[in-house]
Amino acid sequence: MLQLLDYDFMRRALLAAFLTGLAAPSIGTYLVQRRLALLGDGIGHIALTGVALGLLTGRAPLLTAVLVAVVGALVIELLRTYTGTSGDVALALLFYGGIAGGVLLVGLAGESAASLNAYLFGAITTVSAGDLQIVAGLAGVVLLLAVGLWPQLFAVCQDEEHARVSGVPARAYGLLIAVLAAVTVTVSMRTVGLLLVSALMVVPVATAQQLTRSFRTTFGLAMVLGVAASLAGVVTSFAANTAPGPTIVLIALAGFAVAAPVGALLTRNHEGAVP
């Protein structure tokens, strides 16, 4: 099995998988805490427009995707904050606008929608050294902020009003979370793809919280599970010749399927002990 490390493209793929497996659940935990689990998916759709814009203008799709996704994430957050649009409606707007914009722009670029496939479902084995540098840089920023600012981010996601009365600029942190989610989505674009990126942000968190009681262990365990699923997914896809993105997501979901009944048992026993 170690022979796969002989290939440059596999070493890059594993490194990219490791980085996204670590970064995606770290910001995903805050999204789940805010009950915005699908935000990643909505941003993924918006990023599609960014990818198409890159193809149309001949720039690196990864960079245009980051920019467009960040703008989309800011728009959704501002919509929620200032117009009272509910989270799910704001997400729906992103979904439809992103897909429509992406397909339209790709058509204008003279390419078929099929050329979006690599971005929709990931193409981790085609990650170039340059891609990897961008991915590493962005993942590093996401991790630094998601881990370093956890007391603030936790407070804002747990109880925004209380955080504001504690002097925490909650709206700024809300925007920061949206931006970090957008960056994470584009980082994960090459690993699991835009359609499945939400899975890597949310499924490890959902799995972890079956087994945990505290935020900190949920946060840490989700990152461990994210890395495990990503690496196992890349290795499995190499061995079984399956598509890497879906393989990663299905392995993550298998983890949830195992953890859910265990968690239910734990909870039942725990509740029995509550006076």
């Binding site: 789940v32 407070a155 747990q158 109880d159 955080a163 002097g167 925490v168 935020f215 949920t218």
Partner: peptide, 19 residues
């Protein structure tokens, strides 16, 4: 006092010292 992710009683109370 609950949110979408588990948190312990202690974690929630400690967040009151954020100021």
């Amino acid at each position: 006092a609950a949110s979408g992710v588990p948190a312990t009683v202690s974690e929630v109370v400690v967040s009151g010292r954020l100021g």
